[in-house]
Design a protein around this nucleic acid. Structure first.
Lengths: 125, 125
DNA sequence: TTGCTTAAGCTACAATTGTAAACTGCAAAT
DNA sequence: ATTTGCAGTTTACAATTGTAGCTTAAGCAA
């Protein structure tokens, strides 16, 4: 994912992306609005603006049916791994291990996380 | 660290913070400028603006001597662990283990990182 | 067919951010 | 004593972001 896409997804826009990622198929504005109006308290116009901006940024694709249907161009995995790498670059000198060390040392991990990680790094491969 | 401090440190400001974190003692503008003008190509005025903004945000403290000396109020560790938690909250559903899983699946880890993690999560406590 | 609803597009506007110039006052050099 | 330069302060200005209204056109209800 080029810096031109993900790097420009803002916080508000990310809420729209999350919704689209959850949806299995393309959604019309109506559906997007229904979900965000409640959870975010945004006006319809606000939601339309966010969608438009995502389309111009190339993060969301629109297909014309009766009405436009929107779906994500970049996947959630692409985005989140990009965001993680970006964090590592910006504040951990590019070293993932520093990120993890920081998590461990700052009590950023719950017992549950630790348990999961343990099984994750047990004996596989 | 409250959301009011770290959350508002912007990318440009972060460059100033990094410099102050590296310095053992408080620095006068002169010293800050010297280092950032070269590496960043910023005009003196720009650097002064960034410092002022950091001071108003409470991220940097100034002490009057002959001239003001600046030093960080929040530590690098505080900031980076805050930024990490913020990332986890925003895009990993609050679960650190999802962050790490993403790192693993997107080849964000070197062999070395993996080895470290394995010993980190093997048999302790 | 005629107006009502609403999608889509365009415009708005304040706050923040990146970047910097202008101004002001003190301190050092002459 | 004056001048000059630079620290500190104030102001600027465009781009981005958060938030939203206005306008236009088209489909649907009456």
């Amino acid at each position: 994912m080029s810096d031109n896409l993900a790097s420009k997804i803002t916080d508000s826009e990310l809420e729209v992306m999350k919704l689209l990622w959850r949806a299995k198929d393309a959604l019309p504005v109506t559906a997007i609005r229904e979900q965000l109006q409640g959870s975010k308290g945004w006006e319809p116009a606000t939601i339309k603006t966010l969608i438009s901006r995502l389309v111009s940024k190339g993060a969301v694709r629109q297909e014309k049916r009766n009405v436009y249907y929107y779906s994500p161009v970049i996947t959630e995995k692409e985005y989140s791994s990009w965001a993680t790498k970006d964090l590592i670059t910006r504040i951990y000198n590019g070293k993932a291990s520093e990120l993890i060390a920081s998590l461990v040392n700052s009590n950023g991990l719950t017992q549950n996380d630790i348990a999961e990680l343990r099984s994750m790094f047990k004996v596989e491969e």
